[in-house]
Amino acid sequence: MDKMDLAQAIYLAGKAIGAGLAMGIGAIGPGIGEGNIGAHAMDAMARQPEMMGAITTRMLLADAVAESTGIYSLLIAFLIIFAL
């Protein structure tokens, strides 16, 4: 890598830290949410094993809504790295 001056180095470090924080903090919410959804779906399946197919479909549907914030933070991380 070529020698860079201090301003460029701080700029690069800020980009890397920002993208890492955006992805890392943004993954906390979906993790907690999907864990809750999975736990309650397991409870429901244990209570009513004959409803398993319907519960799985609805669980994935709720997972999709929880997961969307993770996808947004991934996009923001990419934008910080490549477009800033």
Binding site: T56, L60, V65, I71, Y72, L75
Partner: peptide, 16 residues
């Protein structure tokens, strides 16, 4: 059942 996994990323990518 495999194809159901598609639902997980469907909402986010559609919005984006």
């Amino acid at each position: 059942d495999f194809a159901k996994l598609n639902l997980i990323t469907a909402f986010g990518t559609t919005v984006l």
